Computed example of a mutant assay.
Amino acid sequence: MVGQLRIIGGEWRGRRFPVTHASGLRPTADRNRETLFNWLQGDVEGRQVLDLFAGTGALGLEALSRGAAGAVFVEKSRPVAKSLQALVQRLEAGSRAEIVMADARRYLQTVPRPFDVVFLDPPFGTGLLPEVVAPLQRGGWLAPEASVYVESGLEEDLRSPGDDWLCRREKTAGGVCYRLFQVAG
């Protein structure tokens, strides 16, 4: 275990948890998460959330802490998924959290269900964002007027990842660009 994850707000506010070391694992910084959830305001409570490249689960856990009805965490690394499962159990969030150990692209080939909020934060420089945006758009994964958060490196310009995605908010910090889109619907 290296580093820590801190929940910023909600039910588990201020709680800290160890983070498993894994290649390419880059948890969303506290400041970026705080900004994101300020942007989302009332868009999380009672909603269904998909954390597609879950890693530490920071985004999905923050959503659950702030009242999301449920969250699906998709993570392809077995050790990271196991660590996330242990954390979900420790928080007693098992009834609202589902951990799926799978590659994000493969997960999007399964039977879709609509999500109100989707977090897309893949490892930078992998080219995965365009590969998951298309199936998200056409596959029934997005509820009407869903919010989609996209975090990428500055070199990965995704100003308009989807045909009907409107950029609500945008910010850069260091080498990270993060945007919140609203899907027209």
Rank of each mutant, 00 (worst) to 15 (best):
S23A: 12
S23M: 10
S23N: 08
G24A: 12
L25K: 05
R26E: 02
R26S: 04
R26G: 02
P27M: 10
T28D: 10
A29C: 07
D30G: 07
D30C: 11
R31S: 07
R31G: 01
R31E: 03
N32V: 09
N32G: 12
R33L: 11
R33A: 15
E34P: 04
E34K: 13
T35V: 14
L36R: 00
F37K: 05
F37Y: 00
G42I: 14
G42H: 11
G42K: 15
V44K: 07
R47Q: 03
Q48V: 05
V49I: 06
V49N: 00
V49D: 00
D51S: 14
L52E: 00
F53M: 14
F53N: 11
A54R: 12
A54F: 02
A54G: 14
A54K: 11
A54L: 11
T56P: 06
L59W: 01
L59R: 06
G60A: 13
E62Q: 08
E62L: 04
A63R: 06
A63L: 10
A63W: 00
L64M: 15
L64P: 02
L64H: 02
L64T: 01
L64A: 03
L64Q: 02
S65Y: 13
S65Q: 14
S65E: 00
R66C: 08
A68N: 09
A68S: 12
A68V: 11
A69P: 03
A69V: 09
G70D: 03
G70Y: 08
A71T: 04
V72T: 04
F73V: 00
V74K: 13
S77C: 09
S77D: 09
R78C: 14
R78P: 08
P79S: 10
P79Y: 07
V80N: 05
A81Y: 03
A81L: 03
A81I: 06
A81R: 04
K82A: 12
K82G: 08
K82D: 15
K82I: 06
S83Y: 04
S83R: 12
Q85P: 10
A86L: 06
A86G: 13
L87G: 00
V88M: 14
V88H: 01
V88R: 02
Q89L: 05
R90C: 12
L91V: 00
L91F: 13
L91S: 09
E92M: 08
E92I: 07
A93Y: 04
A93S: 05
S95C: 13
S95K: 15
R96C: 07
R96T: 03
R96Y: 02
R96A: 10
R96W: 03
R96N: 05
I99L: 07
I99E: 06
V100E: 08
M101L: 14
M101I: 08
A102I: 13
A102K: 05
D103N: 10
D103Q: 06
A104L: 10
A104C: 13
